[in-house]
């Protein structure tokens, strides 16, 4: 318990564990967490108990059974409801991630320069 080697062994085991990924999320689950329920207030269909979301889930289930690709699913919903139906925009609108990262970088640079500034 008191040895540094023991720490090292434990950390190696932890690293090994972190690559050992079992995902139990189905494609259906993934998409139902992405699609917004248009009649609810800001809920995805996975969370929403409404009938409307339920119907959407049925359609989605059907699409996945028929073997739609992600692209086809995306196009299907976006042509019907517009872009706002998709809540996971990171891959398609990459600026959404870039804007905050850019602002944070600027903030950090200014902040560090200011606090180290000479009198």
């Amino acid at each position: 318990m008191k040895s540094k080697k023991f720490s090292l062994i434990l950390i190696i085991i932890l690293i090994f564990l972190s690559f050992y990924k079992i995902s139990n999320e189905s494609r259906f689950e993934k998409w139902s967490k992405i699609l917004l329920c248009p009649v609810c207030q800001g809920e995805v269909i996975y969370d929403s108990p409404s009938e409307y979301a339920s119907d959407m889930k049925d359609i989605l289930q059907e699409q996945i059974k028929t073997g739609y690709t992600d692209e086809q699913i995306y196009n299907f919903w976006v042509t019907r409801y517009g872009e706002r139906i998709v809540t996971d925009n990171i891959a398609r609108n990459f600026e959404i991630i870039l804007i905050p990262i850019a602002i944070i970088s600027i903030f950090i640079i200014i902040f560090l320069r200011k606090i180290n500034a000479k009198k």
Binding site: K33, I34, L36, G42, V44, G82, E83, R84, I85, V86, T87, D88, N89, I90, N93, I96, I97, P100, I101
Partner: peptide, 14 residues
């Protein structure tokens, strides 16, 4: 002039 939704994914990732 188009609507966009920012979902959990954005916040989770950042």
């Amino acid at each position: 002039s188009r609507q966009i939704t920012i979902g959990r994914n954005y916040f989770d990732v950042l």
